[in-house]
Amino acid sequence: MQTMTYEWGSGLARKSAADHVAGLVLRILNDRGIHLDSDLRARIERCQDLEMLDAWAVRASTVDQAEDLF
């Protein structure tokens, strides 16, 4: 039996994954009581780079202020 590896099949799938991780970053910051102004929130929401979003998700659990995320 042959195993298959899949790359992101569509831009829609990639956008959906990025939107999900961006939401996770926002939730972590919110749950930790870290305030985001509208510009920082928009920066996170607009990001479509999954590697960057993943790094932000990790950092979101330790930063003391939103600006330290970047």
Rank of each mutant, 00 (worst) to 15 (best):
residue 59 R to P: 00
residue 8 W to Q: 15
residue 43 R to Q: 04
residue 7 E to L: 12
residue 47 C to M: 04
residue 40 L to H: 14
residue 36 L to R: 00
residue 6 Y to R: 12
residue 45 E to G: 02
residue 49 D to K: 08
residue 3 T to C: 13
residue 9 G to T: 12
residue 12 L to D: 06
residue 20 H to Q: 13
residue 66 A to K: 09
residue 9 G to V: 04
residue 32 R to W: 03
residue 65 Q to H: 15
residue 16 S to H: 13
residue 44 I to M: 07
residue 69 L to N: 06
residue 20 H to W: 03
residue 41 R to A: 09
residue 14 R to V: 07
residue 35 H to P: 08
residue 36 L to T: 02
residue 31 D to W: 05
residue 14 R to A: 14
residue 68 D to I: 08
residue 7 E to M: 13
residue 46 R to Y: 06
residue 65 Q to L: 15
residue 22 A to P: 02
residue 25 V to L: 01
residue 33 G to D: 00
residue 23 G to N: 00
residue 7 E to R: 13
residue 6 Y to L: 09
residue 50 L to E: 03
residue 18 A to C: 12
residue 7 E to Y: 10
residue 63 V to E: 05
residue 46 R to W: 03
residue 67 E to L: 15
residue 32 R to Y: 06
residue 3 T to M: 11
residue 29 L to N: 10
residue 59 R to F: 10
residue 8 W to R: 11
residue 34 I to V: 05
residue 1 M to R: 14
residue 41 R to H: 10
residue 39 D to G: 10
residue 43 R to N: 13
residue 47 C to E: 09
residue 56 W to P: 01
residue 15 K to M: 08
residue 66 A to M: 12
residue 44 I to D: 02
residue 8 W to G: 11
residue 51 E to V: 02
residue 35 H to G: 10
residue 25 V to A: 05
residue 15 K to A: 13
residue 30 N to D: 06
residue 27 R to C: 07
residue 61 S to W: 03
residue 51 E to H: 02
residue 40 L to F: 12
residue 33 G to H: 00
residue 61 S to F: 07
residue 68 D to G: 14
residue 6 Y to P: 08
residue 46 R to I: 03
residue 5 T to Y: 15
